[in-house]
Amino acid sequence: MKKSKILLGTVIVAIIGLITIAADHIDAPSTTGTSADITDFYAFQGEDTDNLVFVASVQGLLSPTATGTASFDENVLVEFNIDTNGDNVEDLVIQAIPRDGKMYFFGPVGPSSTGKNSSISTMSSITGEVAITPYGNTAITATNSAGMKMFAGPRDDPFFMDFARYTDIVVNGTETSFRTEGQDTFAGSNVLSIVVEVPKSMVGTSGTINTWVEAKVKQ
């Protein structure tokens, strides 16, 4: 019984693997279908132009019926990495991790160590928390004393692309051009998103930063 379940799981993962998807959705075999699969990452100037917004989503292609039971994994740390001096090594991190219905935030703060392994910077002077918005509820947001806004919960997948046609052209070789009217492969699907807005002064004064997001799993 157990064996057949595992086998079925493997087959399903293999099938999804064949569809190899998108912005970062199911981009690699060992993340696909797991709670640590990043789907997308955005960084942009906020409505208040003195602020920067970071968005990371995980667990893509959730149908509306699957969204209500999807949840952030307490063993998965989502870490926004910020390089302020152009060497592509993080000088600051913003860490987000769920515990018992809340998303906790630490930073921006200098990490205790850079690279593949992280511990959570609980001694950061900047911390915050927000209740994870349940599916079907109005977005719950919070602002901490440092002026950082926070959100965590299900959202419409903001990514759009005719990924099916791209796959037919590039991977399958069954088509040679895009449709004149494309079809958004991600229409009608949801993701679990973390949105954090911070005053720009927390990450620098001017110039360009390099930023990326990492999903890190507790060992």
């Binding site: 699969d37 990043i38 609980t122 901490n144 890190k216 060992q219």
Partner: peptide, 28 residues
């Protein structure tokens, strides 16, 4: 906030599994 977080367990080592900067780079 710190008092609250002190009561919650955030211990352990977290190891990189997925990452992303620009869209679709790994895929393409």
């Amino acid at each position: 906030d710190l008092e609250v977080t002190a009561m919650v367990d955030f211990s352990g080592t977290f190891v990189m599994k997925d990452q992303m900067g620009r869209p679709a780079v790994n895929t393409v």
